[in-house]
């Protein structure tokens, strides 16, 4: 039943600014940010894409423009077909796009996650708070400038931090991934651990 309608062509007809997007699996289109709310509504109401499978984002790197791309994956439960819509965020410093929670209620938590991880704000979102990290966390961990090991930050609770002296520490992979040593009789030795411990939180990063 799928692929009976060429969705990118239909979109192109309705929204002339749409451009085809290279894709290995499903039909995909790039759309300018101004067209996206109308295009998604068109896909939902007139093309039967009634289910928002995923809403995520891409950070192309610091200094690249456009830096952020928001991606929507839609599924039609009627036609059993997927389509992917990608949209470059107009601003690289303060990316803000329109929320689609009014089209799919399920977009709520996806948009909160994208906001938490990438710092992209969704205008019109009913409750745009962080969903994974705590309120007040100063970074957006999936941005390219955020190091894999993390950044030293205060604990969410100042009282607990004063009581315990603990902080959010950078946790370098220390040459990971962490692997178990199969065949060890001594279970302590067999525990998963990094083979390279040259950099960890007790030993500073060696100069390259």
């Amino acid at each position: 039943m799928s692929a009976t309608v060429d969705v990118p062509a239909v979109l192109k007809e309705k929204f002339p600014a749409a451009t085809p997007r290279p894709s290995l699996d499903h039909p995909a289109v790039n759309l300018p940010a101004a067209d996206v709310p109308a295009a998604l509504k068109f896909l939902r109401d007139e093309q039967g894409f009634d289910f928002l499978v995923d809403l995520t984002a891409i950070d192309w790197a610091e200094g690249v423009s456009p830096r952020f791309t928001v991606v929507y994956h839609l599924l039609s439960t009627v036609r059993h077909d997927y389509v992917r819509v990608a949209m470059d965020c107009p601003s690289d410093e303060t990316p803000a796009v329109a929320s689609v929670t009014s089209l799919w209620a399920g977009a709520n938590w996806h948009e909160r996650e994208v906001y938490d991880m990438f710092g992209i704000t969704f205008t019109g979102h009913p409750d745009l708070r962080r969903i994974l990290m705590w309120d007040g966390y100063p970074h957006h961990p999936l941005r390219k400038e955020f190091p894999l090991a993390g950044i030293d930050t205060p604990l969410p609770d100042a009282e607990i931090m004063a009581e315990t002296g603990a902080r959010v520490i950078a946790a370098p992979m220390a040459g990971g991934p962490f692997v178990a040593s199969p065949g060890e009789i001594n279970l302590t030795e067999a525990e998963p651990r990094a083979k390279d411990e040259s950099w960890n939180e007790r030993r500073a990063k060696p100069d390259a």
Binding site: L132, F146, A149, G150, T164, A166, V168, G176, F178, P192
Partner: peptide, 18 residues
């Protein structure tokens, strides 16, 4: 120890707080 979660989000051992 934090186990396999060498991550910005995971406490690296509960002995840091209790």
């Amino acid at each position: 120890t934090g186990g396999m979660y060498r991550s910005y989000a995971t406490l690296q051992g509960v002995d840091r707080i209790v």
